[in-house]
Design a protein around this nucleic acid. Structure first.
Lengths: 177, 177
DNA sequence: CATATTGGCCGAATCTTATTCGGTCACAAG
DNA sequence: CTTGTGACCGAATAAGATTCGGCCAATATG
């Protein structure tokens, strides 16, 4: 592969408004990133080189930040999914807490508004492993308590979708209740 | 592309234990699914055709269920991320509630143990859109109330990792606290 | 108004990579 | 011991990615 080719990472800042073609391409690629440029072109009505050019730009500008294989948690022995709310004394966004990112069972770490400080999405082999992870979380200075929501079943889980609902249907009126 | 070629979807059931090569390949592909088979082979110590064979099997057996472009929420105008806990009267897993899956801002729907019935991960354009979505959730018969945790900042967010922590370091002993 | 300049598209090469195809080897069952 | 079976490899082939030159429209420029 040539150097200078496909250099992602440059011009991260550009956000030159996505047009209809870009949106469609994003939709198709989120669904299946293995499609050929020829097929993509056919779907959106462009030639393969034109699609290639656009996809390259989407990557360059960061609209697409990664192309990943999504794996089945069961296949890799991660049967337990849980969301852990962490209350901390003071400002929870400490390097120590972020340090738990080193464990591959931690998938997300967010600071949230509401009665908790941090929210974690974790996926472990079993409850034993969740316990091990929670123990490590409690080790972090400033952690007051945690509340874990163990997932019983997942009805849907998908990557960020490019589509946006522009018109929210009116809720049923109170009189109709 | 040939028919009969690359038919994923068959033999979903097979879970013939993943070996070290498979794990390494999964790790590499989760990180970047655009790598060539030659490069993958170099990394794990196999020839390109051998890698191809294994990756095909990983897809066939469902260990890899999708290859997706992961997109930057900001690029598609989805600035607001929130986790919504939904309390329902009775068993919340109704078709009506699952019906909200049709909105592209809904990324996850789980049934959870704990004081709530369902947990949603949603990503919207702004708080206005979150309101619109919540209105639709309240429309579902049986929904008692919701609690939303709005994300202020995301410190980490990544796909399912194949690695597993086998030995959890011992927590600090109480005497050391 | 005439004319550069730019950006984006296309078809036609070209080159890289995926995929297929024997053939070999190790291991296990008969 | 012989026969399968599964997985590997190198080489050959096919498919797809990437590059290239030219074209065209929209927009600046003199």
């Amino acid at each position: 592969m040539n150097l200078e080719t496909d250099d992602v990472r440059q011009n991260e800042g550009r956000t030159r408004e996505l047009d209809a073609f870009d949106r469609k391409l994003l939709g198709l690629l989120v669904e299946d990133a293995t499609r050929s440029y020829a097929e993509l072109g056919e779907q959106v009505g462009l030639s393969a080189p034109a699609v290639h050019e656009r996809v390259k730009r989407l990557k360059r500008t960061g609209a697409i930040h990664q192309t990943a294989a999504l794996i089945n948690p069961i296949a890799v022995q991660k049967t337990l999914l849980a969301f852990v709310h962490v209350d901390t004394a003071g400002w929870g966004k400490t390097p120590e807490l972020l340090g738990i990112a080193k464990y591959p069972e931690v998938e997300e770490i967010h600071s949230v508004a509401g009665d908790t400080c941090m929210l974690l999405k974790v996926r472990t082999k079993d409850s034993r492993a969740l316990e091990g992870l929670l123990a490590r979380i409690y080790d972090v200075p400033g952690v007051i308590k945690t509340r874990s929501y163990v997932v019983l079943s997942t009805h849907m889980e998908r990557p960020v979708q490019p589509a946006i609902t522009t018109e929210w249907p009116a809720p049923r009126l109170p009189s109709q209740r």
